[in-house]
Write a protein that binds this DNA or RNA. Structure first.
Lengths: 201, 201
DNA sequence: CGTTTAATCGAACGTTCGTTCTAATTATAC
DNA sequence: GTATAATTAGAACGAACGTTCGATTAAACG
């Protein structure tokens, strides 16, 4: 508990934001590779080319590091989805936007999204709750779109949305940049399968 | 490295197998809760009501513990699936058997399956390779059934199978025994969505 | 019974971990 | 240019980890 309990620094190094972003990127890389519990703060520091104790100047502890990572990633994911949905006229278009958005976000932020999905249960208490709030917002957003596609049935939309999340969140386990070069085809195929599937529900 | 490098004991306590099973159950419970890296052998021992060093009488190390757990679980999963498929006449019935089998196995072995899915990358080397072999057998089994349902198109069956695995493997993140009491309904709904989806591919 | 061996136990080893403390260094403000 | 705050660096702490070892108990067999 170093930084957050003190008043925020008044005069900041001009490189503060950059350094913080560097640490977050390094953290997502190491945690994606070794898992949260398996990743050491020392490895994160080394990957960020900073001294071990330097990490504790930017973050109060290992858990806050993961928290900042997940919060930022999920918030960005929700934000980009909302923007995409604004340009969609029909529920089907919005559902395609959901899938497109998730896939596209994934290939440009693979490590971050993997850490968000795979380390959901690694936080606890206040940190967990705050991330949960954003996750729920994301979930409800998608579930409501699914419900509109189906035509109301809330219970079935719930289930269908969970199936969809499964397909989306599993991607990091099999995606190969060389083999699956065209991400648009991937998201297009999932959209087909899912849309055809739920329309018959 | 205690046990596996020595010749197998000739005379065994009659409770040997039971004790081993107890340890495996305890391990799956602890690892499902804390993750492989986060789980301590001490906690596993305590949950199995055995002394810490007693674990090392049955397993050469923490990694072999996870290995034995994953190998046994995946092997059982493949075995039960094969038996179910033998009683199916059509590809569609076999696909329903895949989904039914996975769901049913899940609710009776939640911890084990979670450890299999969530800790896939926690092993390495020889252990990882051997589990990978079984996983691939399971995957190919399902993929071929999907291909038969679609009607040949190998490339699309690959993708569709991965989407299906995503939905199946994500279940442990949201399943609530109290809320989703009827597992048959769950698997039935997923089968509907998926079958309708891929038939239009 | 005594002997042999399987099974269990308690204690300890060496390492790595997250975190903290203090000192030194660098950047900013007056 | 000097005072002050922000930032980095190095060393160290205590705790927890996986693993090992030697001794001890329990069971099998003559």
């Amino acid at each position: 508990m170093v930084n957050r309990n003190k008043a925020r620094p008044e005069r900041r190094n001009s490189q503060y934001e950059k350094r913080l972003a560097t640490i977050l990127k390094a953290a997502s890389k190491i945690i994606a590779r070794d898992g949260y519990a398996g990743a050491s703060v020392r490895d994160v520091a080394a990957a960020a080319r900073i001294n071990l104790s330097g990490i504790y100047y930017y973050f109060s502890g290992k858990d806050e590091l993961l928290f900042a990572l997940q919060r930022h990633t999920f918030a960005t994911l929700v934000e980009t989805l909302k923007k995409r949905c604004e340009q969609c006229a029909t529920p089907e278009e919005r559902l395609r936007a959901v899938i497109d958005n998730h896939f596209e976000f994934f290939i440009t932020n693979m490590n971050d999204l993997k850490v968000c999905v795979h380390e959901i249960e690694s936080l606890s208490g206040k940190y967990y709750d705050e991330v949960l709030t954003i996750r729920q917002e994301y979930y409800r957003l998608v579930r409501d779109i699914v419900a509109q596609c189906i035509g109301g049935a809330k219970k079935r939309a719930d289930l269908a949305a969970l199936f969809l999340f499964g397909s989306l969140n599993w991607v990091y386990m099999w995606y190969d940049p060389q083999k699956n070069a065209d991400i648009r085809k991937l998201s297009g195929h999932l959209a087909e399968v899912f849309l055809n599937g739920i329309n018959k529900m």
